[in-house]
Design a protein around this nucleic acid. Structure first.
Lengths: 245, 245
DNA sequence: ATTATTATTGGACAAATGCCACTTAATTGG
DNA sequence: CCAATTAAGTGGCATTTGTCCAATAATAAT
C-alpha cells in the first residue's frame, strides 16, 4: 500500500473514516447545607435544548494539551476556580446516547468547596447547584442521569478509603463537620471516637486555630484545612460496609 | 439557527468538525511461570509498522453495541475466549501520542488464565505473551509502554483489596498458588496464616477436590476455582502497603 | 521406617475497632 | 454569678483482627 510511514501519513485523512463524536463531561460536586450537590447547566442549543445537563463539551484541539486539560477547562469555565480534586471516572460510548450518532464521552468528577464558587456562579454563569437526589429525579439531557449516578457511586466508594470528602468542605472546618460529610457520602452513621482514631489528621490536615460549632453553643472546636497532596492518600482499612464495589 | 431538534439533526454532519481519532486498547494479563505476562501484537501496518503494541483498534459502528463491546471484541479476536474479568482502566488523549493527530484511546485491562488461550494464540494469531518487565524495556508503538504501566499499576492496586488475582490462574489452583500470585502482583511477601485468614475462601472460591503441589512432594492441597461474580468483591482491609494510590 | 517437603492449623501476643461514659469549654437563661 | 445545655474531645475496656512462629498432617523419596 504505502512505502513508508511518511508516505502513509501524507495520505491519511480522518474524515475518510466513520468516527464517533467525542466529548468530556464533568460532574462537579460540593456540599451545601449538609447535602451533596452537583452543578448543572440548562442547555441553550440543540440537541436536547432546554434540558439540564452536566457541564461538558468538545476537545479544543488548539487549546487543550490533553483530555484532562479539556475537563479542567470546562471546570474553570463554570466555577471560576480549579477544584482541588479532578479525576476521570469512566468513559462511555454507544450509538444511542446522543441523537447525532455514535458518541463517546469521558466523564470526570471534580470536588470543590461551595464558598469560592458561589459568587462566580451567581454572577457569571448559567449554572445551578442541584441536590444530587433532586437532579436524578429530573429528565436530564442525554444519559446524564446515568453519568451522575456513576460519579456519585465513585465518590461513595472512595469515601470509604480516601480523604476525598474533605475537598467538598469550605475550609477551615471541624472534625465533626468532616465526619458528617463522610456520613452523608457513605450513607451510614460513624462512631465519633473510631472516626477520629482512624482519620490520619496529622498526615492530611493542618490546624488553623479554633472556632465555635455551627450552633454557636458548646465547646470550641479545632479548625483544620487540607494539606497539599492529600488526594493521593488511601487508608489501609476502609470505613463502613465492604463488598460489592 | 435551527427551529427544531429535528431540523438541527438534519443538517448535522460530524465531518464539519475537527474530531480526534478514537481507539480502544486492551492490556491482557496472565500468569505464566509465576510471572505476570501481557499479550502483545507486532504491528503489520503503518503507522509504527513493526513495533510491538497492545491489541487494539477502532470502534466498529455496525458491530459494537458500546465501547465495552469493542474491547471485548478485541479480546476475543486475540485470545479466542472471553476473559473472566474485563474493566476499563483509563482514557487518555493528546495530540502527540499518534502521528495521525489528536487521538483518544480507552485502555481496558483483561485478566485471563494462560491455559485456555495457549493453543489459540499459537495456532491462529500473530500475538505473543511477553513478561511485563521485558515488554516495558522494548521500544513499543505509540505510548503503549505508558498504557501497560498504568494497567499494571491498576492491577497492583486492586490486588490489595480485591480477589482479582485469582483470574490470572489456571483453575483449579491451591491456596499457596493464589498467595504466590498475590505476592507477584503486589511485589511483597505475605504471611501464610494472615493470607488464609483474610482471603474470604468461603465467599469467593469453590472447592473442587485435592491434588499434589507442583513439585509432586508434600501434603496434598485442597483445590479451588473462582465462584461466579467474585470480581465485584472488595475487602474491608487491604493487603500490604497503604498510602499513595 | 526415616527424612524431606508442602499444606494446614494452633496459640500467644499485638494492634485496631466498637462502644459508651466521662471530662472540658463554651453559651443560654435565670 | 450559677445551673442547665450543648458540643468537642478523651479514657477505658471488651471484642475483633492481624502477625508471628511453631506444631501437626499428609505425601514422596530414600
Amino acid at each position: 500500500m504505502h512505502s513508508s510511514e511518511k508516505e502513509y501519513l501524507k495520505h491519511y485523512n480522518i474524515h475518510d473514516y466513520e468516527v464517533p463524536l467525542v466529548s468530556v463531561d464533568v460532574a462537579i460536586f460540593t456540599l451545601l447545607d449538609g447535602k451533596l450537590h452537583v452543578l448543572m447547566v440548562e442547555r441553550g442549543e440543540f440537541p436536547q435544548k432546554g434540558r439540564w445537563s452536566l457541564p461538558g463539551g468538545f476537545i479544543n484541539q488548539k487549546q487543550d494539551k490533553d483530555l484532562h486539560a479539556t475537563a479542567l477547562r470546562k471546570l474553570v469555565e463554570k466555577t471560576g476556580v480549579k477544584a482541588p480534586h479532578l479525576e476521570q471516572v469512566i468513559t462511555v460510548g454507544n450509538p444511542n446516547r446522543d441523537p447525532r450518532g455514535w458518541s463517546v464521552t469521558s466523564l470526570y468528577m471534580a470536588l470543590i468547596p461551595y464558598a469560592p464558587t458561589a459568587e462566580f456562579i451567581d454572577a457569571v454563569v448559567d449554572a445551578r447547584w442541584w441536590p444530587v437526589d433532586a437532579a436524578l429525579k429530573q429528565t436530564l439531557a442525554f444519559d446524564h442521569a446515568d453519568l451522575i449516578a456513576q460519579a456519585r457511586e465513585r465518590l461513595r466508594a472512595k469515601a470509604g478509603y480516601t480523604a476525598l470528602p474533605m475537598y467538598v468542605l469550605n475550609a477551615p472546618f471541624t472534625l465533626t463537620q468532616l465526619q458528617q460529610t463522610y456520613e452523608e457520602l457513605l450513607g451510614t452513621q460513624l462512631e465519633k471516637k473510631s472516626f477520629r482514631r482512624k482519620f490520619p489528621v496529622d498526615e492530611l490536615l493542618e490546624e488553623v486555630g479554633e472556632g465555635l460549632p455551627e450552633s454557636g453553643r458548646g465547646r470550641i472546636a479545632a479548625l483544620y484545612r487540607p494539606k497539599k497532596g492529600g488526594d493521593r492518600y488511601t487508608f489501609l482499612r476502609s470505613f463502613g460496609a465492604g463488598e460489592e464495589a
